[in-house]
Design a protein around this nucleic acid. Structure first.
Lengths: 209, 209
DNA sequence: TCAACGAGTGAGTGATCACTTACTCACCAT
DNA sequence: ATGGTGAGTAAGTGATCACTCACTCGTTGA
């Protein structure tokens, strides 16, 4: 007669969280235009009408997803610590390792690219939280080390972007274009950091400067 | 003989070329799903029905656009020439300069990203012609220079991808994410090449190896 | 002169889109 | 019990999608 008490139905908040999770993976896989509200409802296990009880429009749901993703601060703290010690290699390794780390869900990168390509209004904010923080912080550190004479006199922002570029491009190749990785995670990070800090030209050989 | 009237209407081939050009810029701007056949027809100045006389489906039109873009060979020839002279700086500058050159139409990069994200079947082929050729060729050169002892002993493919990554990421920031460029074209290229060949750490200072 | 033909289009087609309406049902304080 | 409330949905809504059909032109070879 009476429905079991422990099998209560999900609260509104749980529903909303599940809805956002389901929608996020669909938007990441197929883009905003490529995802239908019917699909989202089905993936979340609810009716299509209920989707619109939680969010007034499909676009509002999309905006909620972009707004939900926040910056990871624990990495920036670790970077800060290594920066104090002037441990160049570790600063760069931390950032590269974070951006390449293999376990991270690939939906964030796809979400970021889709939102930028499709021109969503929250794309800038999303980009700021997901990317700009990294190369802004890195640029600060490079500038500091240039002033200290440890680094060559380069444009700090350009250099920071160059390094992040190497790493992000690596993820791009792997996750978006399906290029296989023939080296291990750690190997790759080490190579990138080494390359960036010390360059490609053999130290004991012809410097063409 | 056919009388060339000066007020003739466009031939079928000219129509097709105009159609492809109009569709390409729309697909690049809004993606496959985001572009309607009605828009394409309007941009090409023809009726929607005529679009389907040229291409059986919207997808076939998209495929024709991707298939049309071919590899630029003149750059690879110039690279080849500098490679023979072992002019490292010029080899890298040529590739970087080509990938960053300011006048290039930005539709190709957007087209490439959209096709990869949306998972079009011709995306791999498109990627191969637009990107892989560059880092494959560059990897060959790096491998050669490593064997000659001029470059440090790094994974050539990884190093090539790292360099292309710096440059492509730069375009990505500028064209997709709207980040402003605070340096000139030539300045940027020079900095990237310099960074990659000689590294960031000051040559006369603490080598942390 | 005129039939044949390719270029071109207006007016649709059913399917699918985002979104709405009108409703049921479980639950609970009164 | 009862009525109010929030969770939930079946069955739509008009708009728009990719694509088709029936048709009109202008040109051209015989």
């Amino acid at each position: 007669m009476r429905p079991p008490l422990n099998t209560r139905r999900p609260s509104s908040q749980e529903r909303q969280a599940g809805l956002i999770a389901a929608a996020a993976s669909l938007f990441a896989a197929k883009g905003f235009k490529g995802t239908t509200t019917k699909e989202i409802a089905k993936a979340a296990g609810i009716s299509e009408a209920l989707v619109f009880k939680h969010f007034p429009t499909k676009r509002a749901l999309y905006a909620a997803i972009l707004a939900e993703k926040v910056t990871v601060s624990e990495l920036l703290e670790a970077v800060e610590e290594s920066a104090k010690k002037r441990d160049d290699r570790r600063v760069f390794t931390l950032i590269a390792g974070y951006r390449i780390r293999p376990d991270v869900d690939s939906t964030l990168l796809r979400l970021l690219l889709f939102s930028a390509l499709e021109g969503h209004e929250l794309s800038d904010m999303f980009f700021g939280k997901q990317h700009r923080v990294f190369y802004d912080r890195l640029a600060d550190y490079i500038q500091l080390r240039v002033k200290e004479g440890a680094f060559r006199n380069v444009d700090p922002l350009l250099a920071a972007r160059a390094f992040i570029g190497m790493v992000v491009h690596h993820r791009l190749l792997h996750e978006i274009f399906g290029v296989p990785m023939h080296r291990t995670h750690d190997d790759t990070v080490t190579t990138y950091v080494e390359l960036f800090l010390h360059g490609l030209v053999h130290p004991s050989k012809s410097r063409t400067t």
